[in-house]
């Protein structure tokens, strides 16, 4: 009995892990690219340890709008260069074509997660100066991943050894 449980648990864990990998790889491959302009969190300490704190321009744009009570997401759309812009706070209404939902945390200013980008120790110098955009990928159901950072020409920053 114990052995059965031991291996059933192993199977469950492996299935869960690999399904998670598959799902995220799918978004990474197929998802539609949206660039989120970065707003410096604090110019003097953008880099902390081996990750970079991120704040997005859409969160700053949201400050000019009033937040309806109970709203937990914002609506964004993209311009021609696939850069995201704040449209309004979501209040349960249906979305127009090209609009996407983005959950937020905290209040005034709102926080969009992930609000950090992790990289290998010592690679900070590549990101520190060049990073201007967060590269997100959205799948059809609205799930999204932060897949990397891009420079001002919206080119993904790659680290070559």
């Amino acid at each position: 009995m114990r052995i059965k449980i031991l291996f059933i648990c192993l199977a469950v864990i492996l299935i869960a892990f690999n399904y998670g990998i598959y799902q995220n790889e799918q978004i990474k491959k197929e998802g539609e690219i949206v660039f989120f302009q970065l707003a410096p969190v604090d110019p003097r300490s953008l880099i902390q340890g081996d990750y970079m704190r991120l704040a997005y321009a859409v969160a700053e744009e949201s400050l000019e709008h009033e937040r309806p009570k109970g709203s937990q997401s914002i609506v964004i759309n993209t311009d021609k260069g696939s850069v995201a812009h704040f449209v309004r706070y979501h209040d349960g209404e249906a979305l127009l074509a090209g609009e996407r939902l983005l959950p937020f945390y905290g209040r005034s200013p709102i926080v969009i997660r992930p609000d950090s980008f992790l990289f290998q120790e010592g690679h900070a110098k590549h990101y520190e100066l060049e990073a201007k955009y967060g590269v997100f990928r959205f799948d059809a159901s609205g799930k999204y991943l932060l897949t990397g950072l891009a420079d001002e020409n919206r080119e993904l920053i790659r680290i070559s050894k």
């Binding site: 449980i5 031991l6 648990c9 864990i13 997660r113 992930p114 609000d115 980008f117 991943l145 932060l146």
Partner: peptide, 28 residues
């Protein structure tokens, strides 16, 4: 996994899933 896919959104989820996934092993 969280680092690769930058899924740092709800850090409690990591610990929740961790606890759930090893519960069976812990019981036996």
């Amino acid at each position: 996994f969280g680092q690769i896919y930058q899924t740092g959104a709800d850090s409690y989820q990591l610990f929740m899933m961790w606890a759930v996934l090893i519960l069976g092993w812990t019981l036996i």
